[in-house]
């Protein structure tokens, strides 16, 4: 385990070290104090623990690395992640997992607005609740919410699957509740297991997806544009 103390190391040195880190290496980042752009652009299958709060874009564009944040994460945690996993032990601010294309993002607490905005293949599991406009323009991948969802869930959705256990304050344009298929149940069960969620089962969730009515510009959809 290699320790980097942000009280004595600057951001450039931290990211330079982590980006050059070898597969299988393990790192611990002390005193992150909410700094932005911590552990971004990692390329190897390594483990990084950020021991405290992180600012914007923690673990942004992650590839392969397993990053754990022992605290809250600011806006855009794991934005555009390609693969690997990011685990936030506290809350995540808005736009968590924005445009992420792969990997697994787990948020133990709540996520703010626009969780999974424009997501492109990532799997996101939120133990708590998500804010408004979550999965906005979600293209693919899965968003699992063990708590509640805010207003306009899945607005202008493409092909992302959304699973919510609690209440949904409102569905966005073109998002509808759909029957849970056997395939959905398998996917959901697998995600809950990968995220280490043992206190709920797929049967507790409802499934939401795109009604695909906005896929083509049409006069009858004018109010939704």
């Amino acid at each position: 385990m290699q320790i980097i103390d942000m009280n004595t190391t600057d951001l450039r040195a931290l990211n330079t070290a982590l980006q050059a880190g070898e597969a299988g290496s393990a790192w611990s980042v002390h005193n992150p104090a909410g700094r932005h752009a911590l552990a971004v652009g990692l390329m190897e299958d390594m483990t990084v623990t950020i021991d405290g709060h992180a600012g914007y874009y923690a673990a942004g564009m992650n590839q392969k690395a397993q990053v754990t944040i022992n605290g809250n994460a600011g806006q855009g945690v794991a934005e555009n992640m390609m693969s690997g996993a990011v685990h936030v032990k506290g809350n995540a601010s808005s736009s968590a997992g924005a445009t992420a294309q792969g990997g697994l993002l787990v948020i133990e607490g709540d996520a703010g607005a626009r969780c999974g905005i424009s997501m492109k293949g990532v799997d996101i599991v939120v133990r708590g609740s998500v804010g408004h406009m979550s999965a906005f323009m979600g293209q693919s991948g899965n968003l699992v919410v063990c708590g509640d969802a805010g207003e306009a869930l899945g607005d202008s959705l493409y092909e992302t699957r959304i699973f919510v256990r609690g209440t949904v304050k409102g569905l966005g344009a073109d998002c509808e509740e759909q029957p849970m298929t056997e395939q959905d149940r398998t996917i959901l069960a697998g995600l809950l297991e990968r995220a280490g969620v043992t206190d709920c089962t797929p049967a507790d969730f409802r499934r939401y997806g795109s009604a695909r009515t906005l896929y083509h510009f049409h006069v009858d959809n004018a109010s939704a544009y």
């Binding site: 709060h53 992180a54 601010s93 709540d110």
Partner: peptide, 20 residues
């Protein structure tokens, strides 16, 4: 941002949330 809270007393046990 969360970072502004870092030095507040007892922040580790605070209820932290984003206003709707």
């Amino acid at each position: 941002e969360y970072r502004a809270f870092a030095e507040l007393p007892g922040i580790a046990n605070a209820q932290v949330f984003e206003p709707e």
